[in-house]
Amino acid sequence: MNNLSFFLIDDDEIFQFIMKNTIAEISPDIKIKFFSDGEKGIDFLKQNLGAATNLPDIILLDVNMPFMDGWEFLNEYKSLQTEIKKDINIYLLTSSNNPNDIAMAKEISELSGYLVKPISKEGIKNLISHFPTNEWYHNQF
């Protein structure tokens, strides 16, 4: 479990910093890579479609980002999915508990779940311990 690989796609530098620290505390073996917007994330995936070792197990995807937001990223991802040589679980990150966002997220089959910020160390631990989640994952009910 501890050799999981994370991508965090989020423009919030502070959140990136916090996640880096949190994950390092859980296990130094867990890898995490940061992208400051959807476009950068998609570009990386496109360049590494066949290189499974470069691909993550989990993508934490922020909704609000410049240039390409979370929803757009999911659209792009959909068209790439068949070419990606790895099973990737994507969890949507958002700072609001907006029911519209949750309903919209559930409609998207590429998504494995939904995480509401702030995400505590326990929250990440919980996600990792349940991974891979077969059912729709939600960190707050």
């Binding site: 919030d12 502070i14 916090i18 609000n64 609001s96 702030p118």
Partner: peptide, 18 residues
């Protein structure tokens, strides 16, 4: 308020606990 204010304030609390 929900999106833009909540994110930095939760960051503050996360940073403070760290």
């Amino acid at each position: 308020v929900a999106h833009n204010l909540r994110a930095p304030t939760t960051s503050v609390s996360a940073l403070v606990s760290m």
